[in-house]
């Protein structure tokens, strides 16, 4: 089974040379730490920066340079700043190659819910609805089950949706799965996790096609 860092490491392998990548808050943010250093990748943050670098050294924080999580950041050579409308032109206009975000629920047809629990938690969708409505390459990073142990990979989402039929790939602490017309196709197992354990933790249709390899990190 993977921890959050493990999920980030596995997703980092999906990042290819020349990609512009938008990282969501939480596990997705960690992905930047594990991208191979022999490829060129630029990270976009929807509050208006392309070419995001690591956190600043202590004493060098700048209130005017933050990411979408409101964290202080730095920029790398070649970076640019822009306004919010232009930022979402990059996203809506499909200029961003890969979007990685977290989710509360994903359904077997690729619907995603991650912005609201009615009556309990209403933080808002931020840029997530724009991202999932336009991105062609969306990877969801999340735990396979919620804190109560219930599956987050469902036949149908129970929470208010963020987007419909948009998720292509999911990386959890247990598995790598692809969303297909027939359901969640199991691509890889996390180290030490059996197909049975994944089946048990998946409420939606799970497609197991032959021998499922263990993922390498």
């Amino acid at each position: 089974m993977l921890d959050k860092t493990g999920i980030a490491k596995r997703i980092a392998k999906e990042v290819q040379d020349g990609y512009y990548v938008n990282l969501g808050i939480g596990i997705p943010t960690l992905v930047a730490n594990y991208v191979r250093d022999d490829i060129e990748v630029e990270f976009q943050s929807e509050n208006g920066v392309l070419g995001m670098g690591p956190f600043p050294f202590e004493g060098e924080e700048d209130a005017d340079i933050i990411n979408a999580g409101k964290q202080t950041i730095t920029t790398l050579p070649g970076a640019s700043f822009f306004d919010s409308a232009m930022s979402f032109s990059m996203i809506r206009g499909k200029h961003v190659d890969l979007t990685i975000l977290g989710a509360m629920e994903v359904s077997e047809n690729g619907d995603i819910a991650n912005w609201k629990i009615p009556g309990k938690m209403v933080k808002g969708m931020g840029g997530a609805m724009d991202l999932v409505a336009s991105a062609e390459n969306i990877i969801v990073a999340m735990m396979h089950t919620n804190r109560a142990g219930e599956s987050k990979l469902l036949k149908n989402c129970s929470l208010p949706l963020t987007g419909v039929g948009c998720v292509k790939k999911i990386v959890t602490n247990l598995a790598v799965l692809e969303v297909t017309a027939k359901g969640f196709k199991l691509l890889e197992r996390a180290p030490g996790v059996s197909v049975e354990e994944i089946q048990k933790a998946t409420e939606g249709t799970l497609i197991v096609d032959g021998e499922v390899p263990e993922m390498s990190l």
Partner: peptide, 21 residues
Amino acid sequence: MLSGELDVELIPQGTLAERCR
């Protein structure tokens, strides 16, 4: 918001930017 004192309309961030623009 939860007590109903405040009316809240949550909209996608890109939509907010573009409705301004």
